[in-house]
Amino acid sequence: MVVPAGVEWPLLIASGMLGSAHCLGMCGPFAVAIGASSASWRGNLRRQLAYSAGRIFTYAVLGAAAAFVGMRAAGSLPAWTNVPALLAVLAGVLLVVQGLFAAGVLRHRAVTGEASCPGGAAFRGLLSAKGTLDVFLAGLFTGLLPCGLLYGMLALAASTHDIARGLVTMVAFGAGTVPAMVAAGLGGSLLGVAARRRIHAIAAWCLVLTGVVSIARGASHVSLSGEPPAGCPMCREVE
């Protein structure tokens, strides 16, 4: 293998950690809303952690599901298609694109139309609820919100074609987002605008790097397509 397998998980955490600076735009207001209804600093921290735990739980389930789908796809498609490799490349491309958007190299089209979600009011109710359980559930639903970064990570999880590994991939990514989210919920503006911008840029290029590594890994498998990739039980069955 060109890239050692161990390279990715620290990178995942890092991209989660730095990528979350970019995600604060979407999920930051939720974290702030959760903090708003808490009187003490300590209580707020507990709520923030519960909220993040909820998010990570959802990420983990999604990761397991993605890995399961990847595994099934690998099993049901013809033997010559190297599904994990293709998924890794797909994930890489998604992450690179997402990273380039974040870095400002690519530009989003302006999103028009009102955002409408029937559960919106109920979701806001959970965010401001007193109980820690409600905050955990709010985090759980936050994990289901559409997010390009998340989809890239999920494609990566799918490429692991193993439920446990897919799950851990997403937990690692989720854990990386905790510091920034908690910080956002606790203090809001601990960092100045300039510092945030710099981190944002680093985060963007970190995403691109994760994507490139993923593409390289996928490509390395494709180049070895003569022999089945290691660790795929379905492919072994086909023999």
């Binding site: 739980f57 959802t58 983990a60 389930v61 397991a64 599901a65 109920a122 109710g125 959970l126 609820a129 109980g131 359980l133 409600d134 955990f136 559930l137 709010a138 759980l140 639903f141 439920i163 799950l167």
Partner: peptide, 16 residues
């Protein structure tokens, strides 16, 4: 609302 959220949480566990 909590009921619905908890049901989602338990269902996710079942799915895994």
């Amino acid at each position: 609302m909590t009921r619905l959220g908890l049901a989602v949480f338990f269902s996710m566990n079942v799915m895994v």
